[in-house]
Design a protein around this nucleic acid. Structure first.
Length: 465
RNA sequence: CGGAGUAUAGCGCAGCCUGGUAGCGCACCUGCUUCGGGAGCAGGGGGUCGAGUGUUCGAAUCACUCUACUCCGACCA
């Protein structure tokens, strides 16, 4: 699937990231079919291309963002103790017959046959397959707890795909699955994921609120959705204002320790989606000035579902007393291909996207205002080399185009900082830095530009919140 | 799955009502001049008008069928 190429391999300074040699098909006109801001901007910024209803190609700029989003997810999953693997997209129908979901799942599941007319399906989720892997190898209580995850393409044949990659039929999902000896232990696993999710969204600059949720077809009795507030959100949500801006569990949080106080702290405030909300409870438990009624985008969903799959699929381990124990499971999903538009919904203005540094396709764009001019080219080439050497992720706009076009492109694709070199400033030995988010501009000696940019960018990478 | 709509160059659109040599803007190519907020001038290339059938001397245009896509509602990372 090509998603496992490391981020580093896509960033080879000085070769591919000259815009004149890059592949960035920005659109001037707004495609008429795109209704919401993130979809419009993803098309205009040349991030994705629709191939059919609910199916998208990720073009270089979009793919680069997607990779950064995935990297953050992986880091936080790993930190919490989850272990990454990779399962196939195509699954055998027999597995799903074991759990009883082959018939239950309905038309959303894409069913296919191979040349021998054996039944297969394009996986919409992986509970069955991971349970099969688990039961094949794990036999002892000593091997628990265990949490396995992967990031893989899923396919759900949605009745009505819409909003670009926000709700596509094929989508990437990080799905983690926990295995524990008891409900109490499983709830601890649930709490670990809960905290990992809080950190994951925060690192992307998002405020995501965990809300009690319906367990739906996956089944079970404990479930939270993580919701980013946005006017274009698909569901109405109701929560306590005090959840907004709540401090995120820090990097040194001990995932082997007791996370229940954090969980209790976050879940003690009322928060529910429209499916689950009880208005009288909402009004009773939240004072009027703290009531938030808004719309939100679901960017994650976690479930504890006990033995729903382990029971029919016979996923058991031997306990200390020699007796068989049916394991308790949970599953935990985040959609990277949905997070990208969700981030754009949260961060854009009239001119385009305004990426948070941590997920920006490039951290800064070096704009050569007069490509072809010896002085400008020389200064920019040197600066570009220095910026790369400083470890910054830089796009170099060396195109032979007018200044306006370059500014417009830089604003549209939302690079956090623009470092501008033109003949005018060059005579004075000066560069200009524009902050995309605020519009603020600062002029400084060229020699100080690298250090200044580094100083601006590094604290915002949020690698260590 | 119910309701509504759209389909003409890469993108955005006009032309259709009232049938008669397929157009505009942007993008693209060539040349010159430009170069601090999507540059100007000149020249040029690109279309079986979503598909099929029918009516007609003649169909982008009229009729019928199909397909794809979008939007609104019920379901989902």
């Amino acid at each position: 699937m090509g998603i496992n190429i490391s981020l580093e391999s896509t960033v080879i300074p000085g070769v591919y990231m000259r815009l004149s040699r890059y592949f960035l098909p920005v659109l001037r006109d707004v495609p008429k079919d795109a209704e919401i801001a993130s979809h419009r901007l993803m098309l205009r910024a040349g991030m994705v291309r629709q191939q059919a209803s609910g199916l998208y190609s990720w073009l270089p700029l979009g793919y680069k963002v997607l990779m950064k989003v995935q990297k953050i997810i992986e880091e936080e999953q790993n930190r919490s103790g989850a272990i990454q693997l990779l399962m196939p997209t195509i699954q055998s129908a027999d597995l799903w017959r074991e759990s009883g979901r082959y018939d239950a799942y309905g038309k959303e599941m894409l069913r296919i046959q191979d040349r021998h007319e054996r039944d297969f399906l394009f996986g919409p989720t992986n509970e069955e397959m991971i349970t099969d892997i688990f039961r094949s190898y794990v036999k002892s209580y000593k091997d628990l707890p265990l949490n396995l995850y992967h990031i893989q393409w899923k396919f759900r044949d949605e009745v009505r795909p819409r909003f670009g990659t926000m709700r596509s039929r094929e989508f990437l999902m990080k799905d983690a699955y926990s295995f524990d000896l008891s409900k109490e232990e499983a709830v601890k696993a649930y709490e670990r994921m809960f905290v990992a999710y809080l950190r994951t969204y925060a690192r992307m600059g998002l405020t995501a609120i965990p809300m009690r949720a319906d367990t739906g077809p996956i089944g079970g009795d404990l479930s939270h959705e993580f919701i980013v507030l946005a006017d274009t959100g698909e569901s109405a949500v109701f929560c306590d204002k005090r959840l907004l801006g709540k401090p995120i569990p820090p990097q040194d949080t001990d995932f082997r320790g007791d996370l229940n106080p954090i969980f209790e702290d976050w879940t003690s405030h009322y928060a529910a989606t429209e499916d689950m909300v009880d208005m009288s409870e909402f009004e009773a438990s939240v004072s009027e000035e703290n009531r938030v009624s808004a719309r939100g985008i679901e960017v994650g969903h976690i479930f504890y579902f006990g033995t729903k799959y382990s029971e029919p699929m016979k996923a058991t381990v031997t306990g200390p007393d020699g007796k068989e124990i049916t394991v308790h499971m949970g599953s935990y999903g985040i959609g990277p291909t949905r997070l990208v538009p969700a981030i754009i919904e949260a961060f854009h203005d009239d001119d385009g996207i305004v990426w948070p540094v941590s997920v920006a396709p490039f951290e800064a764009v070096l704009i050569n205002l007069k490509a072809g001019d010896d002085a400008c080219d020389t200064a920019c080439d040197a600066l570009y080399a220095e910026l790369n050497a400083a470890g910054l992720d830089i796009l170099y706009d060396d195109r032979d185009q007018g200044a306006g076009a370059k500014f417009t492109t830089a604003d549209l694709i939302g690079i956090p900082y623009q470092i501008i070199i033109g003949p005018r400033g060059l005579k004075a030995g000066e560069a200009e830095i524009k902050h995309r988010k605020t519009g603020e501009r600062e002029t400084l000696p060229i020699g100080e530009a690298v250090a200044r940019l580094k100083g601006l960018i590094e604290p915002q990478r949020k690698t260590d919140i």
